[in-house]
Design a protein around this nucleic acid. Structure first.
Lengths: 206, 206
DNA sequence: TTAGACTTCAAACGTTTGTTTGAAACAGAG
DNA sequence: CTCTGTTTCAAACAAACGTTTGAAGTCTAA
């Protein structure tokens, strides 16, 4: 999609920006690199998005609106059913991210962009993410609290913090484990999600 | 130390660079910002380090040489004693990092720089770190393999990957948990290490 | 076919970047 | 003191940055 003429200028810029932000970071990826990769004119960024900062926010918005909705849908389904487990709750959080990362049009790359947002101590970006998507984490935290009543608030928050770290790091593919040759991207990601759920569930319950 | 005249120009630059790299990233922190914070002349960076890239490597070298040595010392002590546990092994890895992060001269900031190195897909940097400090992770991985003989190689590597993610994220203080008012930095960090060991040990054993 | 809005384009704007330069200031040894 | 090597300094370099401009091109509806 990065440079496919059948997509609009807007979409091509978003796709190229996402890839370059994941690869080089927000500051190091220049608009000239982005527009060259997207095969559009340099001025198109400021015409369609107003500024580089707005472009960065749009890159997040395009994916996070859908991701947040899917996560909350799964959480709502879980709340209705009587037989919710800790693994099910983790699955509700992880599977939408897994599906996004398997999206044919560059979804996997976005998870790296998202992890970069944690590394950046950029307060504008953190405020934007917290203001617009913080309620998702809040809802999940409440569900975890109900699932693990034996843990006091402090203890729970410590463990959720650690779990989010493991999830973020793994979904961004920062680790050392490479996809085995002959194994599909999908199979690799599903393996990862499986191990992630198993590991974090044990850590949360311990 | 950042601008304390009793330290050498070289040390002041390293200190200021470490802080700004942690705060803004390697690309976004400019040499002019670094030299201004260190209260030294702009040209001093190229005089003492040759280039910005060399400066970045030196920021890592200054801390990682010591950190790696301490970790391997603890690992060697553990290998001698007969009563090694999984928690002890995790402690051998984490405690040196904890001590570094409590170092009065900006050690805590360095853990954020280290976490940024994971987020950066910069291949020069990754090669530098892997070439110079990869043997530490290798030695620890072998020790974990001995400690968890019931896990096959694939399973073990998945879990270690996830554990390293949790550790990296937590030690870099990327999470949401804030130090409670009235609690010392040391007490906060020690709490974190305790939870980290408990959580990861459960995940590895699960 | 023409009017009007929307989109693309090459070129230029003023800043800021990493790096280099050559002279000035400093240190310790003879 | 003078000499010598080391360190600091202000100034300048070309290159790259985000952004703005006004004209050229494209499309739709009348």
């Amino acid at each position: 999609m990065r440079d496919n003429p059948r997509f609009s200028t807007r979409q091509r810029i978003l796709g190229a920006a996402e890839e370059l932000f994941a690869e080089r970071g927000f500051a190091a990826a220049s608009l000239r690199q982005v527009t060259a990769a997207a095969k559009v004119n340099l001025a198109a960024v400021n015409y369609h998005f107003g500024s580089k900062d707005n472009l960065i926010e749009e890159v997040f918005r395009r994916r996070l609106d859908q991701l947040s909705d899917r996560r909350l849908e799964r959480l709502a389904e879980l709340a209705k059913s009587e037989s919710a487990t800790l693994e099910g709750l983790l699955d509700a959080f992880i599977t939408p991210a897994l599906e996004l990362s398997l999206d044919r049009e560059g979804g996997s790359v976005f998870m790296r962009v998202l992890a970069r947002a944690f590394a950046e101590h950029n307060s504008n970006l953190r405020t934007f993410l917290s203001d617009n998507y913080g309620y998702v984490l809040k809802d999940f935290a409440a569900a975890f609290a109900r699932m693990l009543p034996q843990l006091d608030k402090q203890e729970l928050y410590w463990r959720l913090d650690i779990a989010v770290g493991a999830l973020t790091y793994a979904m961004a593919d920062f680790g050392m484990i490479q996809r085995r040759s002959g194994e599909s991207e999908r199979a690799h990601r599903e393996q990862m999600a499986k191990h992630l759920i198993h590991f974090t569930a044990a850590g949360l319950r311990a």
